[in-house]
Design a protein around this nucleic acid. Structure first.
Length: 902
RNA sequence: GGGCGGAUAGCUCAGUUGGUAGAGCGUCUGGUUUACACCCAGAUGGUCGGGGGUUCGAGUCCCUCUUCGCCCACCA
C-alpha cells in the first residue's frame, strides 16, 4: 500500500494535477463524430477574452461539467465546446488603457497597427480564463476551442450579415440611439442599465417672441435646451390652446421656435409644456418628425457641447448644465427647482451616462425574426428550466424593437457592406468581394463600423460546429441539447441565438432551434446579498477556494448552491479582526468547508475499505447479512435519486442525496455494522467485502460528475469488474437494479437502528462514558422483534457499546420504548444514578409528558370531530389512531418511570 | 409604471400531489470506540414575514398588506 493511501486526510493538489494530466493525455474530453451513437452536445457561454474566472463562472462550470460528465457516463458521444468571446468594447478598452500608459492613443497607431496590438494582447492574455477552467477539471473538448473572431467564425458572421442584408432585414438609418461618450460608440438598448437617481426638475421660463407673454417648461436636462426647436403642449390643454402656433424666442440662443400641439404631452406632468430637443431625446425626435422640426446636435460624441451650442460650445455636458442654469438664472428665467427622481441610463461597460443621440447606424429589423422565436417558445420547442423564464423571453420578443448593431470600434467584425467608388452601388456579400457586382469596377470602400459583439455571439451554437459549411459536426451534434446560462443574458444572448438559428438553419431539425432546453441557474451573491463584483470588492476568487479547500470541494459546494427557486448567498465567516480592506485573509466559507469535509470523509471511508478488502475481493452485490441487503437497497435508492435530480437539473438535490447516503448511511451505519462481521473473517466477511466494494465503486460513479478528481483517484485503487474501463470518467453510469431494493431489510434495519439509538440515548442521559460497557435488557413481546435483535446482537452490542443482551419477561420502567409494528419494545440499561441525574431526568420526563399529553389531546379532539373522520382519507385517520396508541404506550412508560424515580 | 422571484431554526438553504417542519454550519454536553477530531455520540433551537379566506386539515391553494432583490419600460 502506498503512503498516500495511508494519509489520514485528503490532499487535493497532487491528485488534481495528476488526473488533469492523465485525462488530457487519454483524450477523454474529445468527442468524435460517430454516426449511430447517440450524441450529446453543449456549447458553453463564451466568457469574455478579457475575463478571469469569478465565482459566477465557477458555479456555471461546476454545473456544466457535472451535466457533461453525467451524459458521457451514460454512454453518449458527449461534446462540450469551449471558447471565448472577443468582447468588442471591453477588450478594446484594455488595449487602449495599455496604450495610454505609453502615452499613445489608437489614432496614433492607426486602425491596422492598432488591430495588431489587439491580437498581440489576445495571444498573450486571452487564455487566462480557459486555463483556469482546465484546472477546474472542466472536461470540455479543448481541441475544438473557438474564438468569436477566428477565421471560421468570421466567415459565419459575414454569411449571416449578407443573408439578412440581402433579405432586407438589415438597414441603415439615422435615428436616436444610445451613445456612450465614454466608449465613444453606439450601444444597443439591452446594454443600457437603467437606474433610478435623485435629481431635479428644473422649471424654465420661455418668453413668447411677440408681446409680454411667456410659458414655463419643466425639464430634467436643462443643457439640452440649447438644441430645442419647439415647445409642445397637449392639444386639449385649455391653458395653452391660444398659444399653439405662436413662437418663442429661445433664451440664450435667440432663435424662434414654434409652440406645437402633440398628443404625447401629458398635461398633468410638470407644467404641461415640454421643451422639444429632437436630436437628444427619443420622444422629442418623434415629435420633431411629426412637426418637421430641425434637429441640431448640441452634444457631440465625446460628451462635449458642439459648435451649435453657441456660447457653450466646448463645455462638457455636465459643465454646460451648470452654465446654462446660471445663465438662465441671471436672466430671471429659472423659475423653480423641484426634487425629482428619474431613471438614468448608463453604459453596461463603462458606466458613463448614456447620451441619446441622433446618429446614422445599422439596424436589424427584428419583428419578423422575433415572430418565429415567439412561436417556437410557445410551442415548447425550446423548454426553459425553471419554466417561468420562458416568459422573460416572450415579453422581450412581444415588444421587440430594432437592434442597433453597428459599433464605432475597431476590434470586431467589420461590417461587410461595400460601396463602389465608381458607380456608388452599395452591397453586401458573404465572400470578400473583389469588384463591384454592378459595374465591375475594382475599387470598393468598406463600411468603417464593426458589429455588435452579440451579433457574432448569436451564431455561437452552430458557428462553433462549422456553419456555414456543411460539416459532419454540424450534421451530428446539431441541434445542441442544452444551454446553461445566467438569467442576465437571456435576452441579450439566448433570445438572439434562437432567432439567428431559426433564420439561418431552417432546414435543420426542429425548425433550426439551437438547443432543446435552456437551464437558467441561480446567481451567486456575496454574504451581504450583493452581486459579486470585482470592482465593488465583493468578489470571491474561485482560485482562493480551490487552493484552500480543493477543487472537488469547491465544485461540490457550488453544485449544492444550484437550487431552483432563488439566488444564493455565499456564506462567509469572519475571524475576529477581519476587515473589508483585506477581505481574503481571516475568512472561511462554510459551504466549501462542508465540501472539504465530505471529500475527506470519502477519502477515509475508502481507506477503511481498502484496508479491509482482500486482493481477491470482487465488487459484486452478493449480500449475506441483513446489513448487506440493507445498504444495497439504500444504494439503489440513492442512485435513483441522484439520477432523477440530474435529469431535472437539481444539482443541489443530487449532491444532497449523495451526502446523506454516503455519510449518514454508508459510513455511520453500514461500515459500523460491517465491522463485527469483518473481524470474524469468515464467509460473511467475504460477502461484506464484496458488498462494500460494490457499493463504494458504484457510489464513486455517482459522485464523479460532482467531484471528479478524488473519485478517480480512489476508483483506480479499487477492484473493478472484468472488462472495466481504464478511467472512471468513461465508466458507465449505474443502471437501475430493482432486484437490490429490499423493503424488508430496510424495515428491519430501521428497527435495529432505533434500538441502537435508544440505548445510546439511555447512556447519554445517564452519563455513561463511552468506555463503559453496559448490559442491555430487552423486553420484546413480539417474536419477530425479538428475533431481529437477537440475530443482530453483535451489531447492537458493538454500536451501542453493550456487554451482553438480556431478554427479560417484563418491561423495565426505566427503559426507552421503541416500536415494532405498533408493538412496544423496551430497552434498558442498569446503573445507579446520582441525585442530580435523577432530578435532571425527572425534568426531562415532565417535559416529554407535557408534549405527549398535548399531542394526544389534540389528535383525540380531531378524531372526535365527525367531519374529520368523514372527510379525511382512511389512511390518515388510521395513522392518527395508531399515533395515539403509540403515544399512550410512551406516556404510560414515562409515568411508570416517573413513579419509580420519585 | 409593468412583470417575476424571495421572506421557514442564530446563519445559508431544502420542503415532491395540502396530512401538526428538515439538512449543513453554529451553540451546548460527553468522548484518544485502531477509516476519519476535516471525527463520533447525544442535546438545544422554528405562533414557516403580518392579516384574511378556502378546507376536516394550509409552510404548501386564493386574496391582501409589509419588505428585499431581479428583469423589462422613450413620459419631460
Amino acid at each position: 500500500m502506498s503512503e498516500r493511501v495511508l494519509s489520514t486526510s485528503y490532499e487535493p493538489r497532487e491528485v488534481e494535477e495528476k488526473w488533469a494530466a492523465a485525462w488530457a493525455a487519454g483524450g477523454y474530453f474529445h468527442a468524435k463524430v460517430t454516426p449511430g451513437k447517440p450524441a450529446y452536445c453543449i456549447t458553453i457561454p463564451p466568457p469574455n477574452v478579457t475575463g478571469e474566472l469569478h465565482l459566477g463562472h465557477a458555479l456555471q462550470h461546476a454545473i456544466h461539467d457535472a451535466i457533461i460528465r453525467y451524459h458521457r457516463m451514460l454512454g453518449k458521444e458527449t461534446l462540450c465546446v469551449p471558447g471565448t468571446d472577443h468582447a468588442g468594447i471591453a477588450t478594446q478598452m484594455k488595449v487602449e488603457q495599455q496604450l495610454a500608459t505609453e502615452g499613445l492613443t489608437k489614432h496614433d497607431l492607426g486602425r491596422e497597427k492598432f488591430l495588431e496590438r489587439m491580437w498581440d494582447w489576445k495571444e498573450h492574455y486571452g487564455g487566462t480564463i480557459l486555463g483556469q477552467l482546465r484546472r477546474f477539471g472542466a472536461s470540455y473538448d479543448w481541441d475544438r476551442e473557438r474564438f468569436t473572431l477566428d477565421a471560421g467564425y468570421t466567415k459565419a458572421v459575414r454569411h449571416s450579415f449578407a443573408h439578412l442584408y440581402n433579405k432586407g432585414l438589415i438597414y441603415r438609418g439615422t435615428r436616436i440611439i444610445n451613445w456612450c461618450p465614454g466608449c465613444e460608440t453606439a450601444i444597443s438598448d439591452l446594454e443600457v442599465e437603467h437606474e433610478e437617481r435623485a435629481s431635479h426638475l428644473w422649471h424654465l421660463r420661455y418668453p413668447l417672441a411677440e408681446g409680454e407673454g411667456s410659458l414655463v417648461v419643466a425639464t430634467t436636462r436643462p443643457e439640452t435646451m440649447l438644441g430645442d426647436t419647439a415647445v409642445a403642449v397637449n392639444p386639449n390643454d385649455p391653458r395653452y390652446t391660444e398659444l399653439v402656433g405662436k413662437f418663442i424666442r429661445l433664451p440664450l440662443m435667440g432663435r424662434l421656435i414654434p409652440i406645437v400641439a402633440d398628443d404625447f404631452v401629458d398635461p398633468a406632468f410638470g407644467t404641461g409644456a415640454v421643451k422639444v430637443t429632437p436630436a437628444h431625446d427619443p420622444n422629442d425626435a418623434e415629435i420633431g418628425r411629426r412637426h418637421n422640426l430641425d434637429a441640431p446636435i448640441v452634444i457631440g460624441k465625446n460628451g462635449a457641447m458642439t459648435e451649435l451650442a453657441g456660447d457653450f460650445a466646448g463645455l462638457d455636458r455636465d459643465e454646460a448644465r451648470v452654465a446654462v442654469l446660471r445663465a438662465l438664472d441671471v436672466l430671471g428665467l429659472l423659475v423653480k427647482i423641484d426634487d425629482h427622481t428619474h431613471s438614468v441610463g448608463s453604459c453596461a461597460r463603462c458606466s458613463s451616462i448614456i447620451e441619446p443621440l441622433l446618429s446614422e447606424q445599422w439596424f436589424v429589423n427584428m419583428q419578423p425574426l422575433a415572430a418565429h422565436v415567439l412561436k417556437a417558445i410557445r410551442e415548447g420547442l425550446v423548454e426553459y428550466q425553471p419554466e417561468r423564464f420562458a416568459r422573460t423571453s416572450e415579453e422581450w420578443l412581444e415588444n421587440i424593437r430594432d437592434w442597433c448593431i453597428s459599433r464605432q470600434l475597431w476590434w470586431g467584425h467589420r461590417i461587410p457592406v461595400y460601396t463602389c467608388v465608381s458607380c456608388n452601388h452599395e452591397f453586401s456579400n458573404a465572400e470578400e468581394p473583389t469588384a463591384c457586382p454592378k459595374c465591375g469596377a475594382g475599387e470598393l470602400t468598406q463600411d468603417e463600423n464593426v458589429l455588435d459583439t452579440w451579433f457574432s455571439s448569436a451564431l455561437w451554437p452552430f458557428a462553433v460546429l462549422g456553419w456555414p459549411e456543411k460539416t459532419p459536426e454540424l450534421e451530428y451534434f446539431y441541434p445542441t441539447d442544452l444551454m446553461i446560462t445566467g438569467r442576465d443574458i437571456l435576452n441579450l444572448w439566448v433570445g438572439r441565438m434562437i432567432f439567428s438559428s431559426m433564420e439561418y438553419l431552417p432546414e435543420k431539425p426542429v425548425q433550426g432551434i439551437p438547443f432543446r432546453r435552456v437551464y437558467v441557474h441561480p446567481t451567486v451573491q456575496n454574504y451581504e446579498g450583493k452581486r459579486m463584483s470585482k470592482s465593488l470588492g465583493t468578489g470571491v476568487d474561485p482560485l482562493e477556494l480551490m487552493d484552500k479547500y480543493g477543487t472537488d470541494a469547491t465544485r461540490y459546494g457550488l453544485c449544492g448552491m444550484a437550487t431552483a427557486t432563488q439566488d444564493v448567498r455565499l456564506q462567509e465567516a469572519h475571524e475576529p479582526g477581519w476587515s473589508k480592506d483585506d477581505p481574503a485573509t481571516g475568512r472561511t466559507f462554510p459551504t466549501f468547508v462542508q465540501g472539504r469535509n465530505f471529500a475527506n470523509k470519502i477519502w477515509n471511508a475508502s481507506r477503511f475499505a481498502l484496508m479491509n478488502l482482500k486482493p481477491e475481493t470482487v465488487a459484486e452485490a452478493r449480500p449475506a447479512s441483513l446489513a448487506d441487503r440493507w445498504i444495497l437497497s439504500r444504494y439503489q435508492f440513492a442512485a435513483a435519486a441522484v439520477t432523477e435530480a440530474l435529469e431535472n437539473y437539481r444539482l443541489d438535490q443530487a449532491t444532497g442525496a449523495l451526502y446523506d447516503f454516503f455519510w449518514n448511511e454508508l459510513c455511520d451505519w453500514y461500515l459500523e455494522m460491517a465491522k463485527p462481521a469483518l473481524r470474524a473473517d469468515d464467509a460473511a466477511a467475504d460477502a461484506a467485502r464484496s458488498t462494500l466494494a460494490y457499493v463504494l465503486e458504484h457510489t464513486l460513479r455517482l459522485l464523479h460528475p460532482f467531484m471528479p478528481f478524488i473519485t478517480e483517484e480512489i476508483w483506480q485503487q479499487l477492484p473493478h469488474a472484468a472488462g472495466a474501463q481504464e478511467s472512471l470518467m468513461i465508466t458507465a453510469w449505474p443502471v437501475d437494479a430493482p432486484e437490490l431494493r429490499n423493503v424488508a431489510a430496510e424495515t428491519q434495519v430501521a428497527f435495529l437502528m432505533e434500538a441502537i439509538i435508544a440505548v445510546r440515548k439511555l447512556r447519554a442521559d445517564q452519563g455513561v462514558t463511552p468506555g463503559q460497557k453496559v448490559d442491555i435488557s430487552i423486553h420484546a413481546a413480539n417474536a419477530d422483534a425479538h428475533k431481529i435483535l437477537e440475530e443482530n446482537a453483535a451489531v447492537l452490542l458493538t454500536m451501542a457499546r453493550g456487554e451482553q443482551l438480556l431478554f427479560t419477561p417484563a418491561a423495565d420502567n426505566a427503559g426507552e420504548h421503541i416500536f415494532w409494528q405498533e408493538t412496544p419494545v423496551t430497552l434498558a440499561i442498569s446503573r445507579e444514578i446520582t441525585p442530580e441525574e435523577k432530578a435532571k431526568e425527572l425534568e426531562k420526563i415532565a417535559r416529554d409528558l407535557a408534549k405527549l399529553t398535548s399531542d394526544i389531546e389534540k389528535t383525540t379532539a380531531r378524531l372526535n370531530t365527525p367531519s374529520f373522520v368523514e372527510r379525511a382519507p382512511a389512511e390518515v385517520v388510521t395513522k392518527n389512531r395508531a399515533d395515539i396508541a403509540e403515544w399512550e404506550h410512551r406516556r404510560e412508560a414515562l409515568l411508570a418511570r416517573q413513579g419509580a424515580l420519585g
